[in-house]
Design a protein around this nucleic acid. Sequence first.
DNA 1: ATGTCTTTTTCAAAAAGA
Length: 268
Amino acid sequence: MKNLKLATFNVNGIRTRLPQLLEWLRKESPDVACLQELKAHNETLPLAEIREAGYGAIWHGQRSWNGVAILSKGSQPIETLRGLPGDPSDEQSRYLEAAVHGVIVGCLYLPNGNPQPGPKFDYKLSWFERLITHAQTHAGSGHPVVLAGDYNVVPTDFDIYDPRSWLKDALLQPESRERYQRLLSQGWTDAIRAKHPQERIYTFWDYFRKHWERNAGLRIDHLLLNPVVAPRLVDAGVDTWVRALEKASDHAPTWITLDMSPAKRPAR
DNA sequence: ATGTCTTTTTCAAAAAGA
C-alpha cells in the first residue's frame, strides 16, 4: 500500500499565495494538506482552483486574518469539529478537524501571542489550554489522530538559529514551551523531531533581515501523532524549496508519510 | 527600534498583525 503523505502549510494569504500553493500541490502531491492563515473569508476562497487541482476541501475562513482549511486529494474531508471547544466567545478561525484518508486530522493555527506580556499573550496561553484539554480526548483514543499546524512555539533552543534576538518573543517564552511539553506528555510524538533528533530543522524564516538567505529559521510548524499513528511514521521533512519561490510565504510546507497498511497478523 | 509582507480602507497612503 502506498504511504499516506500529510502536510501542514501556513500560506500567509491564500489568494496572494495561490500560484505557489498550486505548484506545491502539483509537485509534492500530499494526500492531506492543512492550511493556515488563509486571510480570506469563505466567499473569497479560491475553491475552484483547488478543486481543479484534484482536492476536496473544507475551510473555516475569516476576513483579513487567521483562517484554516483541510484539503484532501481525490476525496472530500468529513468535518468532525469546527472551532476549538471551551470558549463560545472566541470568534477567531483557528481550528478545524476532519476524517480524511482514514485519519482524524486536526488543523490548527495557534495564536502568535506577541507582544508579551499582554492580552494577546494571555489569549495564546488560554487557547493553548483549550487545545490541551481537547487533545486529551484524542491522545487516548483508539483511532489514528494527527494534530498538524502552526503552533507558534519554538519547542527548544535547538529549534531556532539563535535565540538571542527572540528572548522576549512569545514563541520562545517558558509559558509557551511548558504548554507544548505538557501537550506532548499526553503521549503525542513530534514527528519531525522523532525522525531527525540530531538535525537543525526549520519551517519558518521571517521576512526581515534576510533570514531566508542566512537560513536563520525557526521550527514552529509541527505534526503531532497519537500513539495509534506514531508506529506508522515512515518519514518527515520540510519542503524548503517552496520558501525559495518568488513571493513565497514565510513558512515552508512540513510533512510526514505514514504506512497505513493493516497491522500484520502475529506469527504463529 | 528596526526590518518585510499582507490585508483593509473614505481609492491610496497608512494602519495593523505577524
